[in-house]
Design a protein around this nucleic acid. Structure first.
Length: 532
DNA sequence: CGGCAATACTG
DNA sequence: CAGTAT
DNA sequence: GCCG
């Protein structure tokens, strides 16, 4: 049933399910429970001049989050469990946990914002390594810095001075290097490593090359070796004909360099979405098209537009040529400027890809052998063939709101039966997807992708050949909730899918404690919570 | 010292 | 297949 | 960079 705030308060009062002391079978994570992220710490801190200073024992800095350490095969829980054991051994203490007042399932929205400074520092380090992976290992450095940038924000305490460093030691992912950088940050307010990386002219040059869409670390380095340091250099080189070897996509990337750096407002995204969706319905009546990505996650601005297309009549297949037809129509109306991938029959983002010809179908007929009966009328129901699989398109869209600005757009179409998996994937974010897939594989022995969820051992590994088997072998899910359920994870609304740590095992009847929230807060946070 | 998600598209 | 992308 |  749906739980009202009043009901929850009543439960708290009557303590019908009370917070229990964590036993060894349980653990806390060192991470704040999502529900306490915003509220708890500021409160506690403000009382009596900072509890971090007051309390030395570890039970006090992570007072609540009681998560059952159930499945032992869950690596994340396992690690955390491990960490706790370690801690328990080294440090014994008596009481704690007085603040928890009740339990809910399916905890509410994550609120971030703690340890901003440190998080930003780690994020910077991540980016500096990510954008310029000079050594082969840098990629994973960046990965880990990124994860930790997310994790510090979820800590249930503020890192205000060095005394918390030993506590950090017990939290998964904070090793010597990162703790030292945090220490440095606490002492000096900066990080020499960042300065150093930012100073390095080579790295800086490669960074600016890498920001060109379709230029990665390898080509970026090549360009720098050739003497190009800035986007201006590259443009100059291009105009001199020195860089003819670059791909068509790279040329688009160079042309749109500044535009692609920019983020757009939600309103612009929704307007672009409207255009695409309306056109889509013309081309494919009955289609369900939705804006996904960061827009769906509710971010205030977005780096690109992601549109997912489904059609209930195409359950195991996709309408052959529909995506191409949509793209072509968008080209004709002047909205779509460039293709970065080819679609169905259309040519790739190559040279003459623009408006090809007048005859609506010439492109399709000439390119795609597969078209069966193309119903002709531009707005009637088309008869589409069945393409077995999904397809995805990347392109460049003309901003309807900001004249001259060009926006990255991705459009994907999937068989209807894959809709839950496709929308999960396409909603992201990236870290969340990786976390979820890691969980699937390590904790559940299954492989999760945008087509389905497959018990390992299923014969899906050999690429395109087995797409069919792959589909057939997937556990069925009609909704995203189903997927969380299948994986034994707490449901997360799109807006909550914002980090690697946003994944929590579904407590099997094991309550999750929350800290005191005032009524307004509870009302605000919980009025939509579903409790089974 | 191996693993860190899993896949699509291009040339 | 490597590189870039999601 | 960190973990097992």
């Amino acid at each position: 049933r749906t739980v009202t705030p009043a009901w929850i308060l009543a439960q708290f009062k009557h303590s019908s399910f009370r917070h229990q002391e964590p036993t060894l079978d349980q653990c806390w994570t060192g991470l704040a429970h999502p529900s306490q992220k915003r509220k708890a710490a500021p409160d506690t801190r403000n009382k009596g001049g900072g509890w971090i200073q007051k309390s030395r024992n570890l039970h006090e800095f992570a007072p609540v989050t009681v998560v059952k350490a159930s499945s032992v095969d869950n690596p994340m829980i396992l690690r955390i469990h491990q960490a706790k054991k370690k801690r328990i051994q080294s440090q014994q203490s008596s009481s704690s946990g007085g603040d928890s007042v009740g339990v809910v399932k399916n905890p509410p929205l994550c609120n971030r914002g703690r340890n901003e400074g440190i998080s930003n520092m780690l994020k910077q380090l991540s980016n500096l390594h990510l954008e310029c992976p000079l050594g082969t290992m840098d990629h994973w450095r960046a990965y880990h810095y990124g994860l930790m940038a997310g994790r510090v924000k979820q800590l249930d305490f503020e890192i205000v001075d060095e005394r918390v460093l030993p506590r950090l030691q017990h939290i998964q992912g904070f090793g010597d290097s990162i703790r030292n950088k945090i220490k440095e940050y606490l002492q000096t307010g900066t990080c020499q490593k960042i300065k150093e990386l930012e100073r390095d002219p080579y790295r800086k040059a490669v960074q600016s090359m890498i920001k060109i869409w379709s230029i990665g670390p390898i080509k970026g380095k090549e360009l720098v070796e050739l003497g190009y340091r800035t986007i201006r250099d590259v443009r100059k080189g291009l105009s001199r004909g020195e860089l003819d070897g670059l791909s068509a996509n790279a040329k688009i990337g160079i042309d749109c360099y500044e535009d692609f750096e920019e983020r757009m407002s939600r309103s612009e995204v929704s307007q672009i979405g409207d255009i695409v969706i309306r056109t889509c319905r013309q081309v494919l009546p009955g289609a369900e098209a939705t804006i996904m990505g960061s827009y769906r996650r509710g971010l205030p601005n977005c780096g690109d537009i992601d549109v997912l297309i489904l059609h209930p009549d195409f359950v195991e297949t996709t309408p052959k040529g529909a995506l191409g037809r949509l793209i072509r129509m968008l080209h004709q109306s002047g909205h779509m400027l460039h293709d970065l991938t080819s679609v169905d029959g259309m040519t790739a983002g190559g040279n003459g890809t623009e408006l090809q010809s007048e005859s609506d179908d010439s492109v399709f007929h000439s390119r795609s052998s597969e078209i069966e009966g193309q119903g002709e009328t531009s707005m009637g129901l088309q008869k589409y063939g069945h393409y077995h699989g999904s397809s995805s398109y990347m392109g460049v869209f003309a901003s309807p709101t900001d004249a001259g600005k060009r926006r990255r757009i991705d459009i994907k179409i999937y068989p209807y039966q894959e809709r839950a998996f496709a929308s999960m994937y396409f909603t992201g974010n990236g870290d969340f997807n990786r976390s979820m897939r890691l969980w699937s594989s390590k904790a559940r022995g299954m492989t999760l992708n945008d087509h389905g969820l497959f018990p390992n051992g299923t014969d899906f590994a050999n690429g395109k050949e087995s797409v069919d088997k792959l589909k057939g072998a997937s556990l069925p899910a009609a909704t995203e909730e189903d997927i969380f359920e299948l994986l034994g994870l707490e449901y997360r609304a799109p807006s909550e899918r914002d980090s690697f740590d946003a994944i929590v095992e579904k407590s099997t009847s094991q309550p999750v404690a929350i800290v005191e929230l005032d009524k307004g807060e509870i009302h605000h946070e919980m009025k939509h919570i579903w409790i089974d």
